[in-house]
Design a protein around this nucleic acid. Structure first.
Lengths: 143, 143
DNA sequence: TTCTGTCGTAACAATATTGGTTACATCTGC
DNA sequence: GCAGATGTAACCAATATTGTTACGACAGAA
């Protein structure tokens, strides 16, 4: 278990809630979502809890509790979800500081960091171009 | 210890070998590279071993052994190094197959996989635009 | 042939993340 | 107060990364 499917599960959950609400239901429970995702409800609650921190969803408690979208699927991009999950950068710099007495060791840090920034920016642009409404539309289209 | 600095270390090693060779030396030892990177020589040997599989470097053995670049720094992009390292995709799909009886669970796989392909492609385009010669030039410029 | 320096690689430890699970406290409408 | 759901802590198993020690394999030099 190591691959990162957090974005996948979060997007799945949000799309599921969106479709469920569109069909007339007010709230979706972590149990229902977990069934569709095929995982444990606690996994869903943990992920949606992070998304709540970014105000993408909110949770009702008490009887008839469950999850509600705070934004329309059209306003939610994969970048919003990715950011809400607070993921680490894809590429990390040196674990230990390189030799400062070596030209390469001394200068490579900022250079490679700049390159990584551009890579992350490209990733973000791509993620920002895909809304959850797009995802739902393509899902329904394929049926 | 979990962040992924493999690309950083590999690029560092290759740039170091390139500069060392440009200064008249034939081979670079994993010991020397490890000193600049500030890590253990075995870490360098392991990474360069993977790069050898993609024919980016080769290793001489016996007395006076060490590593030699198989291509010029101008011909080596960060994408070449990234590919040679055989990294897993940044985003993974579901750990367990989603519920096939649910519209979302049934249809989301290919849709989200397509989105991820576009994201990886954008990342690759960016990595392909940066050569190790660019990295070395920027390092020397900053000195 | 033997010595020497280096790569090649296995094996292990330490750490961190992810995903799954159980358990239980907390909240709120009825 | 009860019922049904969230909120969270506490584990566990599996995996990846990095560091480390150890030792075999190789090839040139003496």
């Amino acid at each position: 278990m190591s691959a990162n499917s957090r974005l996948t599960i979060a997007a799945h959950a949000l799309v599921w809630i969106g479709l469920y609400q569109r069909r007339g239901h007010e709230v979706a429970t972590s149990e229902q979502i977990a069934t569709s995702v095929n995982t444990n409800p606690v996994v869903i609650r943990r992920l949606l809890g992070e998304l709540r921190g970014a105000d993408l969803v909110s949770a009702r408690r008490g009887t008839g509790a469950g999850w509600v979208l705070r934004k329309n699927l059209v306003e939610l991009t994969l970048l919003d979800v990715y950011r809400a999950l607070g993921s680490e950068p894809v590429f990390a710099l040196h674990p230990a500081q390189p030799d400062p007495d070596c030209v390469v060791g001394h200068g490579i840090g900022p250079v490679i960091a700049g390159a990584y920034q551009n890579v992350e920016a490209a990733m973000h642009r791509e993620l920002a171009g895909i809304t959850l409404e797009d995802v739902l539309r393509d899902i329904l289209k394929a049926t």
